Amino acid sequence: MLELLTGTGLALAAGLNAWVPLVVIGALDRFTGLVELPPAWAWLSNEWVLLILTVLLVLEFVADKIPGLDSVNDVVQTFIRPTAGGIAFGSGVDASTVAVTDPETFFTTQQWVPVAVGVVLALGMHLAKAAARPIVSAATGGLGAPVASAAEDAGSITLAFAALLAPVLVLLAVVLMAILVVMLVRRRRARRVRVGHPPTTG
């Protein structure tokens, strides 16, 4: 159960920022005794892999703070974040999950299931984030986008550490995010109603 919560938290974190959970899990494995990656995922703690992931993290961090460029970044990340989510979930669930080194074995033994679950979770989170961003931008004239992006980065970092160090907290995070999504959907519907039926005067 805890392994599933760990995988879920890491995948959701990847849906907000593809590189945060991968950097966190790799760094904790390499520099601390808090995380021990399964052998097949040990490449995440390689110093060169960590360096590349950190550079990509910085690039996304900057790109997502610039109005206009953040929308382009979201389009590109539609493919990257789910992939990162699959890797994060797969590396987080348990030591029996393996990387895709033998495609035939990978699919016939259902070892692809954790990776697929991670892809779906990260994609869902990414789509929710991408849908919320235009609402924030429209409400603030674009000025709120950097703030929203910073909040998403903070959420990704918090989720990643919670997933690895206190997996039970992932349940609370999932509930809170579900509430936020519902609130955003209701607000969007209310706005459409106002636009479709503007108030009359006089």
Results as ranks from 00 to 15, higher is better:
residue 194 R to H: 10
residue 180 L to H: 06
residue 41 W to A: 13
residue 162 A to E: 04
residue 197 H to I: 02
residue 130 A to K: 09
residue 127 L to S: 15
residue 99 A to W: 15
residue 189 R to I: 05
residue 40 A to R: 14
residue 129 K to L: 03
residue 101 T to Q: 04
residue 91 S to G: 15
residue 96 S to E: 14
residue 62 V to C: 10
residue 54 T to N: 08
residue 136 V to C: 02
residue 7 G to K: 08
residue 195 V to K: 04
residue 132 A to Y: 03
residue 16 L to V: 05
residue 85 G to N: 14
residue 15 G to N: 06
residue 27 A to G: 07
residue 85 G to H: 12
residue 92 G to A: 03
residue 142 G to I: 01
residue 158 T to M: 02
residue 174 V to Q: 03
residue 15 G to L: 06
residue 16 L to K: 04
residue 143 L to H: 12
residue 106 F to I: 06
residue 30 R to N: 03
residue 101 T to Y: 03
residue 98 V to L: 14
residue 98 V to W: 07
residue 77 Q to I: 05
residue 201 T to Q: 13
residue 96 S to T: 11
residue 183 M to D: 10
residue 160 A to P: 12
residue 54 T to F: 09
residue 118 G to W: 05
residue 27 A to D: 08
residue 66 I to K: 03
residue 41 W to R: 14
residue 112 W to N: 11
residue 137 S to Q: 10
residue 42 A to C: 12
residue 201 T to L: 08
residue 129 K to V: 09
residue 166 A to S: 02
residue 93 V to T: 14
residue 109 T to L: 08
residue 104 E to V: 15
residue 137 S to L: 01
residue 62 V to W: 07
residue 82 P to D: 00
residue 177 M to T: 10
residue 131 A to H: 14
residue 29 D to H: 14
residue 77 Q to R: 13
residue 163 A to R: 00
residue 186 R to C: 04
residue 73 N to V: 00
residue 129 K to R: 13
residue 48 W to G: 01
residue 77 Q to K: 03
residue 161 F to Q: 00
residue 106 F to K: 05
residue 129 K to M: 09
residue 187 R to Y: 07
residue 39 P to C: 06
residue 165 L to M: 00
residue 125 M to N: 02
residue 110 Q to T: 03
residue 124 G to D: 12
residue 125 M to P: 11
residue 166 A to P: 07
residue 114 P to F: 08
residue 24 V to Q: 04
residue 164 L to E: 05
residue 131 A to C: 13
residue 99 A to L: 12
residue 183 M to C: 04
residue 80 I to S: 11
residue 10 L to Q: 00
residue 57 L to K: 02
residue 79 F to H: 11
residue 124 G to C: 11
residue 82 P to G: 09
residue 148 A to P: 02
residue 68 G to H: 00
residue 176 L to K: 07
residue 151 A to S: 10
residue 126 H to Y: 01
residue 10 L to K: 05
residue 154 A to N: 02
residue 77 Q to V: 04
residue 137 S to P: 12
residue 147 V to N: 06
residue 101 T to C: 09
residue 1 M to K: 11
residue 86 G to Y: 14
residue 42 A to W: 04
residue 188 R to V: 11
residue 18 A to P: 07
residue 151 A to C: 05
residue 142 G to C: 13
residue 13 A to F: 01
residue 89 F to W: 13
residue 2 L to F: 11
residue 18 A to Y: 01
residue 28 L to G: 12
residue 190 A to E: 05
residue 170 V to S: 11
residue 130 A to F: 01
residue 77 Q to C: 11
residue 43 W to I: 07
residue 84 A to M: 12
residue 107 F to V: 15
residue 147 V to F: 10
residue 175 V to T: 03
residue 191 R to G: 10
residue 112 W to A: 11
residue 193 V to M: 06
residue 34 L to M: 13
residue 35 V to K: 10
residue 78 T to Y: 13
residue 55 V to G: 05
residue 108 T to K: 06
residue 60 E to F: 07
residue 156 S to G: 08
residue 178 A to P: 15
residue 150 A to S: 12
residue 76 V to G: 07
residue 107 F to G: 13
residue 161 F to S: 03
residue 75 V to G: 06
residue 49 V to D: 10
residue 160 A to W: 13
residue 200 T to N: 00
residue 17 N to K: 05
residue 7 G to E: 01
